[in-house]
Design a protein around this nucleic acid. Structure first.
Lengths: 211, 211
DNA sequence: AAAAAAAATTGAATCCATTCAATTTTAAAG
DNA sequence: CTTTAAAATTGAATGGATTCAATTTTTTTT
């Protein structure tokens, strides 16, 4: 069934991804040369380019896998959110930001986000953008769910507000990775404050819940 | 007073900026080589690097000038804002986005924003980030002014909400420059819708104005 | 299983941003 | 107006991402 060629292709992709992942994290994206990745993955430089359009796209492939996991983790919050709007958003924050530096360095995030803007047409840049879209949907779903349960007022369109909330989270995260000295705690605290401000405006007046 | 050296320095800076500006816009940032800029500016490659850290920083210098103008233009809106919160935010949108493509191409914006994230420590990257900070302040000032005049409720902190609004605008602008096919009208319409949603939540109930 | 076709691999060559040691220009000192 | 010191300019050299024509491997055909 799965021919030799197909198997080798999968193998090589994995080896290249693993090598790049390790090296980017250990030595830093800029300091790693394609030649280093090729050597560690036991392929030639040319082969790396057969599998990934550019060095940057290779990074984006790695980062995208991380974002996929985050989206998966976020589903549990949407499925069963805290009652308070502010708490619900905080839960999402914690999932989105909480593990951001486990496998990726700030430099990797910076570079990946920069590439997704500066070179948006590569395969994994598109993928990254697509994942951002899914994150917007997830936030929207959460807001929608909060409305459905009567925890949030019905005065707003969850899609629109979901995008606003996500755009804010994303921009805050960008500022976080831009400043090497900024701690995760500071990021989470600042974002939580902003979400609380929004939450106050869209939270359901408890009295309204009586009807 | 102004020594020869000082005058030449200013001259050369201007020539380099003018040459780069023209070439980036005409041929596209990526297609322009430092050698081309040096030739048109009538200096050597090395001199370009004496004035600007990198090709990217040269671009950021150009883009920063544009942002400075936008901030200046924004002051008039803050000084005398429309009565409706939504309209006030729309005015700001129009100023911020309206002329964005007059002197700069989408590619230039994309590259500049990418650089400000990916290489945040260069002189003009810092400058660009600083200008973003001023834009946040400007939006905050507008909200504050709207509160002062009783057009907006007092239930929110203008600083916090100003940052949220700006972060959203910025992220929307990023999406705009990422998609070569997206029109300015589409961007403005989408952003206006989001601002309206926020405006509805923070607008002063007219009845409250009676006291 | 040999031959032909298709797909992948390879590493040397190319292209450009960036660097740097040598040279030239300007300012300061005598 | 020399001499000396400081600042700037210069373009050839460096380094690394990317490309590409030649070669090798795998698959398909006969």
């Amino acid at each position: 069934m799965t021919g030799l060629r197909e198997r080798q292709k999968a193998d090589r992709t994995q080896r290249i991804l693993a090598a790049a992942s390790r090296l980017f994290r250990d030595k830093g994206y800029d300091a790693v040369r394609i030649e280093d990745i090729a050597q560690l993955a036991d392929v030639s430089v040319g082969t790396c380019y057969n599998y990934f359009w550019t060095k940057g796209d290779l990074l984006l492939a790695i980062v995208s896998m991380e974002v996929e996991e985050v989206i998966l983790a976020g589903k549990s919050v949407v499925a069963d959110p805290p009652v308070e709007v502010a708490l619900a958003l905080d839960s999402l924050i914690n999932i989105y930001f909480g593990h951001s530096l486990h496998y990726l360095s700030k430099e990797m995030w910076r570079t990946a986000m920069a590439l997704s803007i500066g070179a948006p047409e590569t395969p994994f840049s598109s993928r990254y953008t697509e994942l951002d879209g899914l994150l917007v949907l997830q936030v929207s779903d959460l807001l929608s769910e909060l409305q459905r349960r009567g925890y949030a007022c019905l005065d707003f369109d969850p899609q629109t507000m979901g995008q606003v909330v996500f755009n804010n989270l994303n921009q805050m995260f960008i500022e976080f990775v831009k400043q090497e000295s900024m701690s995760l705690e500071t990021l989470i605290a600042a974002t939580s404050r902003q979400n609380s401000a929004l939450a106050r405006l869209i939270a359901q007046d408890p009295a309204e819940n009586q009807r």
